[in-house]
Amino acid sequence: MQVWHSLAELPRDLGPSVVTIGNFDGVHRGHQAVLERMVADARARGQVAIAVTFDPHPKAVHDPAHQPELVTGVVDRLERLAQTGLDGVLVIDYTLEFASQTAEEFVRAYLVEGLRAACVVVGHDTRFGRGNAGDVDTMRTLGEQYGFAVEVIDDACAVSESGRRWSSTWVRELLEKGDLPSAAEVLGRPHRLRGRVVHGDKLGREIGFPTANIDVSAGMIPRHGVYAGWLTVVDARGSAGAEALVGERLPAAVSLGLNYTVGGTDLRVEAFIIDRTGLPLYDTEVTLDLVKWRRPMLDFGGLDALVAALTEDVEWCRSVLA
């Protein structure tokens, strides 16, 4: 899948294309169903399938004081979009200047002249252009004017077996509860955090549980507590020792929250790699795929009780991940 970040990067021979537009936060099973069907339709027509998405999220630009909590960061969003079979994704740098375009200016510049759309696939509630003035009827009118078809998504393929519509909102609700298995069911995969391994206070090493402290840069922080999960090094960032670890899934007991026992006041995300020691993880970029929540963060009153609890946590995580 090709990724473009501006109109200037689009190939001159692109098209004709089938295009859809959205934030695609989480790329959950509803997104996947719609995109996979769109890709199949594009293949049948001999056309390319392209998604248009935005970074940062529009709400973060229009109301920066109330930043939306995104399920996934842009890197993981693109990785998951690629898995649907799309030929390309145009990531638009969402700014107030971009948002000032009229609906017609956006359609003409991006869909017609840039992506050479033969068909545009939209949802029933699609809004676009300055002040969100454009809707489905606007898109149909512009399609007639500029010569592209408009298809409105049939939501039937975006409804779960329970009857509830797949949605990013549903995923957030489940993550806030710590219900990782159900969140994975909606997402079609485990929930993922991404970040860089940084130096911590080394307390874990002193008590026999050395951890990788992760400065999370993307992915929604779920309910605080202890989790079973998988840590994967995705970029060694120049570490020769870590190169051999890239791509290997490492079983981990993950502590996410405040370490009350030692008076912690800052959010920490720490991963204890099970049955592996001495791994050169500092400064590497890693992902954490969280599988199951075990317990909340607790004040054990002292290090001995904390060590006993961690020992039980690790055994539980080893069993879950086995």
Results as ranks from 00 to 15, higher is better:
residue 11 P to D: 15
residue 318 R to N: 11
residue 97 E to H: 07
residue 305 A to M: 03
residue 8 A to F: 03
residue 162 S to R: 15
residue 235 D to E: 13
residue 212 A to Y: 03
residue 4 W to N: 06
residue 203 L to A: 07
residue 314 V to A: 10
residue 30 G to M: 02
residue 19 V to D: 08
residue 272 F to K: 03
residue 18 V to E: 10
residue 236 A to Q: 11
residue 100 S to A: 14
residue 252 A to M: 11
residue 64 P to A: 07
residue 41 D to S: 11
residue 180 L to S: 03
residue 147 G to P: 13
residue 298 L to F: 08
residue 5 H to D: 14
residue 296 P to Q: 14
residue 248 E to Y: 14
residue 67 Q to E: 01
residue 101 Q to F: 06
residue 67 Q to H: 13
residue 18 V to Y: 06
residue 221 I to Q: 06
residue 142 L to H: 05
residue 119 C to M: 11
residue 68 P to W: 04
residue 313 D to L: 08
residue 255 S to L: 13
residue 262 V to L: 10
residue 277 T to V: 12
residue 233 V to F: 04
residue 301 G to Y: 10
residue 186 V to Y: 01
residue 84 T to K: 03
residue 44 A to D: 02
residue 276 R to C: 10
residue 130 R to E: 13
residue 320 V to G: 04
residue 178 G to H: 08
residue 127 R to G: 05
residue 14 L to W: 11
residue 123 G to I: 03
residue 4 W to P: 06
residue 88 G to N: 12
residue 112 V to H: 04
residue 304 D to P: 07
residue 248 E to N: 15
residue 79 E to D: 15
residue 310 L to C: 06
residue 113 E to R: 04
residue 253 A to Y: 03
residue 122 V to Q: 04
residue 112 V to R: 09
residue 220 M to S: 12
residue 48 V to E: 01
residue 46 G to K: 00
residue 41 D to V: 11
residue 120 V to S: 07
residue 29 R to Q: 13
residue 58 P to K: 03
residue 124 H to E: 14
residue 227 Y to R: 06
residue 274 I to L: 13
residue 186 V to R: 02
residue 70 L to D: 03
residue 1 M to A: 15
residue 31 H to V: 09
residue 269 V to M: 08
residue 148 F to W: 12
residue 201 D to A: 08
residue 257 G to D: 03
residue 311 T to W: 09
residue 292 K to E: 14
residue 309 A to E: 15
residue 105 E to K: 10
residue 86 L to E: 05
residue 171 V to M: 01
residue 99 A to L: 14
residue 260 Y to S: 00
residue 238 G to V: 12
residue 169 T to N: 10
residue 215 D to S: 07
residue 282 Y to D: 13
residue 66 H to E: 14
residue 39 V to Q: 11
residue 212 A to M: 04
residue 85 G to A: 09
residue 161 E to V: 15
residue 105 E to L: 02
residue 69 E to P: 02
residue 193 L to E: 06
residue 158 A to L: 02
residue 291 V to R: 01
residue 217 S to G: 02
residue 274 I to H: 10
